[in-house]
Amino acid sequence: MKAYERVRLARDKDRPKIGAYIDALFTDFFELKGDRLGGEDPAILGGIAFFEGQPVTVIGHRKGSDLKENLTCRFGMPEPEGYRKALRLMKEAEKFHRPVITFIDTPGAYPGKSAEEHGQSRAIAENLAEMSALKTPIISVVTGEGSSGGALAIGVADRIWMLENAVYSVLSPEGFASILWKDSARAEEAADVMHMTAGELYEEGLVDRVIPEDKGGIQADFDLSIRAIRSALKTELAELQELSQEDLVSLRYQKYRHFEGELEPDYADFNWDAIELKELEEALKEVVSHES
């Protein structure tokens, strides 16, 4: 399947939203609202529920399931208040030793006026920093589109999973094409080079598990994917909960410490294989002749 077809599937309006996952995986969900700093953002949904009898904190992007809700939730694009609510709930989870499970499905953090006035950057940065040191297990599941810092802000986790047709990227393919090629219409082409599908990211080691979907997409057999998530959660939560808090945080540090593309150690060297001799000469000549 072409990468952009998966982007379409990930964005499909009929793709299950966070509510469906909560209903299928947990019982007794109790929603908790507000960042305790003066705001409540519906684009982030959070609360406590039972998973197989144990209390967990559940947090995720809420896109909304009809147009009215879509608009109130800005299609799942949070304001700083949403990220601060998420952080408050995570700190409470830490206090009561509840694992945190986050569901990622967002086109990105909301690029609005009040978002900037209220410190979107600081809110996201704080979540990245605080999640890295949270003394309770965190598992993140990308269920739809995971786009940019707005996704990562609830995605610093011990385990990162993706649904088979979910996508996770530095920016939407439209934004990517518009920045690099000044042409957002080249989104399909962008999706091909961005390595944003679950399969590619799993192969590169940036994602820990791919949750299978039915051939017809997740809507065709939601239960198949839910069974896979449930069984993975059972095993991996048990594993993570056996670790001491110290080991847990230290392993998370190590995981993020080593996220990088291949690096080349020598000063004037880099991936010489990737550039043709002729191309190299021309590129260098261009620089020198430009100035003489």
Binding site: L152, V156, L171, I179, H195, L206, F259
Partner: peptide, 25 residues
């Protein structure tokens, strides 16, 4: 982010924040 490095670039946000946080701690 450095677009040409895709997700590797996005994850540098987490990596650098994690490092800075530990330094501050």
């Amino acid at each position: 982010a450095r677009m040409q490095e895709g997700m590797y670039s996005l994850f540098q946000m987490a990596k650098t924040s994690v490092a800075v946080q530990r330094f501050k701690d």
